[in-house]
Design a protein around this nucleic acid. Sequence first.
RNA 1: UGCCCGAUGGUGUAAUGGUAGCACAGCAGAUUCUGACUCUGCUUGUUAAGGUUCGAGUCCUUAUCGGGCAGCCA
Length: 606
Amino acid sequence: MNAEPNATPSPAATVAPSDFIRDIVAQDLAAGRCAEGVVTRFPPEPNGYLHIGHAKSICLNFGIALENGGRCHLRMDDTNPAKEDIEYVESITADVKWLISGWADSVLGLKPKGEKPAPAPGGDFRIRPVPAADHAARAPELEPFFASDYLEQLYLFAERLIEKGKAYVCDLSPAETDEYRGAPDRPGKNSPFRERTIAENLDLFRRMRAGEFPDGARTLRAKIDMASPNVWLRDPLLYRIRHLAHHHAGAGWCVYPLYDYAHCLSDYLEGVTHSVCTLEFEVHRPLYDWILESLELPRALPRQYEFAKLHLAYTLVSKRRLLQLVNEKIVAGWDDPRMPTLAGIRRRGIPASALRRFVIGVGVTKFDSLTELAVYENAVRDELNAAAHRRMAVLRPLKLVIDNFDALPLGSFQRMHATDRPDADKGGGSRDIKDSFEKELWIEQDDFSETPPPKYFRLKPGGEVRLKYAGIIKYNSVEKDAAGQVVAVHVDMDPDSLPGGSAKDRKVKGTIHWVGVKSCIDAEVRLYDRLFTHPEPASAENIRDVLNPRSLEVVTAKLEPSLATATPEERFQFERLGYFTPDAKDSAPGRPVFNRTITLKDTWAK
RNA sequence: UGCCCGAUGGUGUAAUGGUAGCACAGCAGAUUCUGACUCUGCUUGUUAAGGUUCGAGUCCUUAUCGGGCAGCCA
């Protein structure tokens, strides 16, 4: 192999594998078919929030651009004013920037605000992005691309199609259009308006634009083949009448292009070379090509390629179903940390690097697969393990009393070192927790059992266990309340097992974590689990049937005091429990609310 | 049953006519002041039948199974 000598990637680095689309790009490049470089695009419709499925598309498109020194345009595919809103433009832009931050920022294509395609030789138009190097300096005056910025050019192209005899104005009603289309196994029949003259079509189309006709009265259709076995070639609609202002384009329009017409031409105007979309658009590809070829455009044409969507077990991405969760208050909103939205994933504390690594790792194929949740969880744990600061926290407290505390030689050492990050040799460092070590501590209820199951390594009657970073304790007795519940466990500590002691390295099977009763702080901690109990929640008739009743548990936890100043940008491992991060919305300065991102892997059978 | 697409261990993916590999999961062990991490080992696969070829996961044929397509949505 020809590996670079110093190309040893960190565990967090994601090496993009090859796949059939990247192979095509490489071939095109080798054949000199991309004179102006590789240009891809991520084109969401601003009618909802981005989710984990979009992450795959984002990483594919930005990844291809990055690997080939090209660029990737963020484009709002906003040709249906009835469904879209500026709110989504903003959330989509923020989510994309978050996901590519620190990875592919350098290939993000944006443009000056308000800029539209400029006329070019041969009756052509084109629009150019601002180089990413200038983004920082010009940030306030930049915006994504918008298909709705091309309304004028798209309209002009449509007139050209009419002039070439390749499009006509049709007066059929929606129901009639549907009937004339036939069915996949039954040919359609020609519209009675199919043979209008070019002059008549031009006149009618101009009057459509001028607002002379009501919604639905007429459409512009491509003249292809009503008997085609591919229904998308049966004189597909290009334009419909909608007397509606547009969230981005304003009030000047009442005819709006449909997806198949607008998308290929938007790609062309932006100089996109590889237009990558999901499998359901496979049957649209002949139409994509037909429109571009019919216009006899002067520049190289973009090509469409399709890949399989991401399907992740125990996860739902259907907009309708997700909306139901929000509307019925099953979750707290679109950015609830249990949601598969990028906003939810981010709030949950999952690093963008982990999401990227996951979606890139599942690969790109045309096979409709279902990816196990464990693959996702592994990526998250792996990134967090490397990045998270270690802290001690007790989620379900039980009091521990060290009976011989006052006799312990605590004055003989200055510090009690606790790991901050395991890679201390690389600057991970340590912190001092000596002031937290008190006579009375909180330990996890799970870490004591009066009647332990087999192979129980934690504290039990007659047993010994190590208090992490401190010393070894031996069971003395339990205190119970009137109801017989254990309220405190009494132990003695082996003084020689303290840091610096003669038996500091003595081995015992179990180590448990703790916080000081007096020094600890109380904090709300939200314990999240998967939202659904079924690996394919989409297959359920009613999502309520497959909801996990324990997808959220809120506890008041005892945290070591250093956690009081934690901020939402910080990642922590609460030792032996999992990874946690302060909630970005509900935390207050000095009073963080923690979200559990994910538990530690637990191979001890529960 | 019109057209299009697909099928490699439990899951995802690689092998571009020449040794079926990787990751995750699982199991066993080592290590461990996190039952984590790390390390070692193991189990398990080319949908089927024909054909072409010295040689087929790969090319051809047929079958089987799965997915997609009939919005004035994208």
